[in-house]
Each structure stands twice: as C-alpha cells, then as structure tokens.
Design a protein around this nucleic acid. Sequence first.
DNA 1: CCCTGATTCGC
DNA 2: GCGAATCAGG
Length: 204
Amino acid sequence: MSWTDERVETLKRMWAEGQSASQIAKELGGVTRNAVIGKVHRLGLSNRVAGGREDEDEASPAPTAAAAAAPRAEPKPEPAARAEPAAARPAPERPAPAAAAAPSNVTPLPIRKAIVPAGQPLPPQPSANEISPEALASVREVEKRARKLTLMELTERTCKWPIGDPATDDFWFCGLPSLPGKPYCEAHVGVAFQPMSARRDRRR
DNA sequence: CCCTGATTCGC
DNA sequence: GCGAATCAGG
C-alpha cells in the first residue's frame, strides 16, 4: 500500500479527530500503526492541541553552541495532551452497544417512556428472566469485578457490556477481557448469545 | 499485558 | 519517503 492522496486525507482527518495511530492503521488497512505515526511525523502534524494555533516555526534565532551542545538531553517537558474532543465521535466503525453516552444526565427532557435513546443494538440487559439462574449469578458476580471502563476506554479485547443507567453517572462498561472474536467477556457472552432453543424452552 | 506516540535508521 | 524496530511511557 502506498500513501495515496486519499489515504493521506483519511489519515489527516482521523488524526485530527483524535483517533489513535492504531485505529487509523486499521481503518486504512495495509499499514501498521508505526507506518501511520511515521507518516504523521513526516507530514509535520505530530502533536498540537485542537484549536490551538500555536506558532509552528522553531526558528531559533541564535542556535549557538548552547543549542548544539544539547542534542537531546531530555526534551520531554510536556507530553502535549492529545486533543480530547469533549464530544468526539465514539467510533464510526463498530457502533458499540449502548452508544448512548449520557452527557447531560440532568433533566432528561420530558421523555414519555424509557430513555432508550435511538440505537436499537442495545444488548439485552440481564433484566429478563429469560436467562438461566447460573448465568445471571455469574453476571452479577462478574459485574462486581468490572473494570468500569468508559466508552473511550473500550478496545476490541474488552467486554463492551454496558452496566448501569446511561442517563446517569452510574454507568460504565464491563471492560473485563472479552472472548476472542466476541464483544463480551465470558460471563456476558453467556447471557448475550443464547440458542433459540434455549430461549423457547425457558419460555413458560 | 494492554495500549499510546516518538524516534531512529536501513532501505 | 517509508516503516520496522525500538524506546518511553500510561
């Protein structure tokens, strides 16, 4: 793969959005995150905070011996926090279940029924009695050890099972190690994926 | 261990 | 210019 204008544009866009190099690499395909980072640097858009129009020129007026004498002692003053867009797009790719991040938990508007935002991919909550007692117990147990990750902290290897009420601060994602190829941890896979037969049998 | 970006340097 | 290897860190 080569850096076509289109790919570079995607790179720039995603980088500007605050996407990580690895995410960008996955999106583009055919490149590693190292390649992405390398390109980012070559393009000269390494760091920089959103909106901050800082002077780019490094034109040191007098690069005297002092500057040269200090090749790179430890120029690590500031980590230059990445632009953390308060309302950044969660992820255009895999629409995480319950993508309903509740920003303003207060005054949920005069909504009639439930709060269920708009997405329908909301995974079935263990509220139903359609789940085996064992699985339920397992889930409850696991949720005590949940890592309580935020939406941004989820990766392909973390359980994306939502816990709590999205409309309040009492909301997080399980975050425990997810089963390979699955979006949830073992316990949550147990309640998320059930054979049709099992469902019917359990039905009274 | 998972992940991040930064840098180096042979190609 | 490119990006794997490596570094430095959370």
